[in-house]
Nucleic acid binder design. Structure first.
Length: 307
DNA sequence: AGGCAGGTGGCCA
DNA sequence: TGGCCACCTGCC
């Protein structure tokens, strides 16, 4: 194991820093790490054959892997090392102490939730850059993770600034506003290209709109997000959960609909009803609970797996 | 080979 | 409110 790791070629990006532990992040299983980085929260992490993940967010690039004891560790291109070191704690939301928080979920009265928590201990909700999270979930309509990743990879490759040799960030919203819809469409976006183009125009017309929205309380922030073209309740909740740390957001998509029907007997319930049930049953950490439920169903093979 | 896909918006009763 | 359908097109 150690040998193949040493023999495998480092990715592009020039010289890479030495591996260091991610501070304040407890040991994880490989399954849980994969759920965090490649389970539908973020779409710019790619797993190499040896299990190492390579990801980009804002102007940051990092590799992440598990040391032998399961301790997550990271490495960055030397030129970005200091910046990444600063950005990592926020991105992994290590200040949230979710392992402790998760204990306040109603697992004592919910046997299914209890086994999800036990099996995926350490599952973390990322705190991604708000604008990039919005872009990612605008791409997500009726697409699976593999394809969303493909769209964003193309957007970055063709329209994003280079941040290290061989690596490009996602285009910013001001940059997106300058791209004709046709060029967006060419990045495999399909009808989502129009949503992104129109949203970019909205944002360009209102400087500071995103930053203000991110700072608003949950309900007000969600309402504002839903006023953007292509953003409905589900997308807004995903953006707030994965891009703003609003753990009370409980996105309801077709999969959570199936999961809740199967595990909680909610057959035939409509999305709005399931959302209300979720908030009432799971409480202020409903979004975290949801991520555990997803992890469980994916392992059962009831959810599409990322490539 | 052809349907389907991790939503949203618009239109109709 | 509630249900239905178009929207793009790459992938299994």
């Amino acid at each position: 194991m150690g040998k193949t790791r040493e023999l495998s070629r480092p990715p592009a990006g020039g010289a890479w820093s030495a591996w260091r532990p991610i501070p304040d992040l407890a040991a994880l299983s490989a399954d849980v790490l994969a759920e965090i980085l490649d389970g539908g929260q973020a779409f710019r992490w790619h797993r190499a054959a040896d299990g190492t993940f390579l990801g980009v967010w804002s102007d940051n690039i990092a590799q992440v892997r598990l040391a032998t004891e399961g301790q997550p560790e990271w490495s960055a291109p030397l030129a970005l090392e200091a910046r990444v070191a600063r950005a990592l704690p926020e991105y992994f939301a290590t200040g949230q102490l979710l392992a402790t928080l998760a204990d306040t979920l109603p697992w004592r009265s919910d046997a299914h939730l209890a086994r999800c928590l036990a099996d995926f201990r350490g599952l973390q909700i990322l705190r991604q850059p708000f604008g990039e999270t919005l872009l990612g979930f605008l791409c997500s309509a009726t697409k699976q993770i593999v394809q969303i990743k493909q769209m964003l990879a193309l957007l970055a490759e063709r329209h994003g600034a280079e941040i290290a040799p061989g690596h490009r960030r996602l285009p910013t919203w001001p940059e997106l506003a300058a791209i004709p819809e046709e060029k967006l469409r060419a990045c495999l976006l399909g009808f989502r290209a129009r949503y992104i183009a129109q949203t970019a125009q909205c944002l360009a017309a209102h400087t500071g709109w995103l930053e203000e929205t991110e700072a608003l309380p949950y309900a007000a922030a969600k309402e504002r997000l839903c006023s953007l073209p292509g953003v409905g309740e589900k997308v807004a909740d995903c953006v707030l959960l994965f891009g703003a740390g609003r753990l009370e957001a409980f996105p309801v998509d077709v999969w959570i609909l199936k999961t809740m029907a199967r595990r909680y007997g909610l057959d035939g319930w409509k999305p709005a009803q399931v959302a209300q049930f979720g908030r009432a049953h799971f409480g202020p950490l409903a979004g975290l609970a949801q991520q555990y439920l997803f992890a469980w169903e994916r392992r059962q093979g009831r959810l599409p797996r990322p490539a």
